[in-house]
Design a protein around this nucleic acid. Sequence first.
RNA 1: GGUCUGUUGGUGAAGUGGCUUAACACACCACCCUCUCAAGGUGGCAUUCACGGGUUCGAACCCCGUACAGACUACCA
Length: 553
Amino acid sequence: MELNERKQLAELLFPNIKYNRDYYEKMYPERKLKDGAMVTRYGPSPTGSVHLGNLFSAFCDMVYARQSGGVFFLRIEDTDQKRAVDGGIDNITGVLKGFSILPNEGYSYGGEYGPYLQSERTEIYQTYVKDLIIQGYAYPCFITEEEAAAIRQEQELSKVKIGIYGSYAVDRDLSLEEIKQRLNEKKDYVIRLKSPGNSKNEIEIIDCIKGKMKLPEYDMDLILLKKDGTPTYHLAHVIDDHLMHTTHVIRGDEWVASLPIHYQLFDILGFEKPKYAHIAPITIKDSETGTIRKLSKRKDLWAGAKYYEENGIPIEALHLYLATIANTNFEEWYLNNQDKKIEDFHFSFDKQAIGGTSFDEAKLVNICKTYFSRKSGEEVFDETLKYALKFDPEYSELLKSNKEDMIKFLNVEKDSDRPRKDISKYSDVKEEFSYAIDELFTKENYSKYDGNKEFSVSLIREYVNNVLDLSVSNEEWFNGVKEFAVKNGYAASPKEYKQNPSDFKGHVGDICEALRVMVTGRTKSPDLFSIVKILGKTKVLNRISMYENYLNK
RNA sequence: GGUCUGUUGGUGAAGUGGCUUAACACACCACCCUCUCAAGGUGGCAUUCACGGGUUCGAACCCCGUACAGACUACCA
């Protein structure tokens, strides 16, 4: 087809496209950013579901843009209406906000390079495709979906590469007359790329994370525009990331196989290519099959973004975990720089895992525990209250009315250089500090006691009434317990007891254990004297009576 | 089937030709500290880096083959 025929064809196919590509090139000028600033983007499809992998990818986008003084924008890739789910887009923006993964431009954030909804950019894509038709790089193809499926089947049988290319691309060289005729018959058509590639050629690709790769050149007549005039992902990606001046395309590595397509598209359209960074998926070893697979929202509790919110996993702790899997040297850095923040760490692509990153639940839990151990009682209280207001309103009321004491409980053993690590999520607080709030402490708590000893109520009552002094130091307190123990025929230390067990009724630890069980309902607790001090004598005596009732029930 | 990519202890992994008798963290076990637990301390936990061959004075690191695993191979993204 001659140039003037191609021009006719372009007008025939796109009568409503008024502008040419220069119009858009001028509309979206180069960004004015400092050298080395990265422009990244997160491009979810509007299904609305967000899982850990999405969060991870968006987290990487944010972190690289932020540390380079660049831009991280949000673009909704909704070119396929079949994937749209009601409220899906709002859910995505909501989840991102909820997890403090904040774009500084894009859908719902505004910016100069919009619209950031691909469904609103159809004219832009068509403008470029129209130009491609004029240049002879694209053509209308009338092969129906059924016909394509048949071709595919035939190719499978004859073990030949699957797709529309070479002799299978029957509409490639249709004359203008033939096309007009089919158009008059109102036949459906798609716009395909007239691929100039040859799969025998190799192209070298340098991925920021995976390094050098050699892939065969793309030689298929890819669909650019679907029959509804809407672009495929490939076309939309290339045009958008060019116009929006993305410098680094960070995306899941399921896309590496499409890289030759994208390279070819960039070349044909005369665009400068961005750099690519393909991140490995977060995987997990399937407990049933033993194989490694991507996280699945249906099978893995931890996969869905909701899980973290509902269970009260702190956002910052999740960020720490994502940073840990993003850069393999982050964990050690953080351990040695405990006073620093994630923002202080320099992320780099070559410290990013090439293969799959396995999800390590135990590690996440540990990171969370460390996070909590470094927070003050006040901070833990505030955050827990915020969580409870949303997921446990009843508990939130109790927290509010017990604020002062609760903070004291949360602060027990905080001032030491080895703070406790017994909470890994906000929802743990209620259970872990079950003894802290009087309204929640009933004699039922004793049924959770995991030992089988029965303690002497009168002995402990005597101790509390006659010996316990809340004004002394921890050391003096313990000495007092020892004295009381000895006076009542108990050994002053477990060691002493072990040497001659028959000489004693037990040892000082047994007295403590009895008091601990009566006061907290369990055999394990943070520092006992601290707890007793916060409760005060009256409440302690109350609990002793409660225990007595429990025994006599 | 084809094309790419990966494979290091119980787990996440460091490691890119000699400082590796394989880091670090988590988990686990033992002991210590100790009124319980948590925390902390000390030690243990891969004689070996999927397997086979090659290059090299020297290989977990480079090359080839095999096995296994993953991704892609849509008018989905």
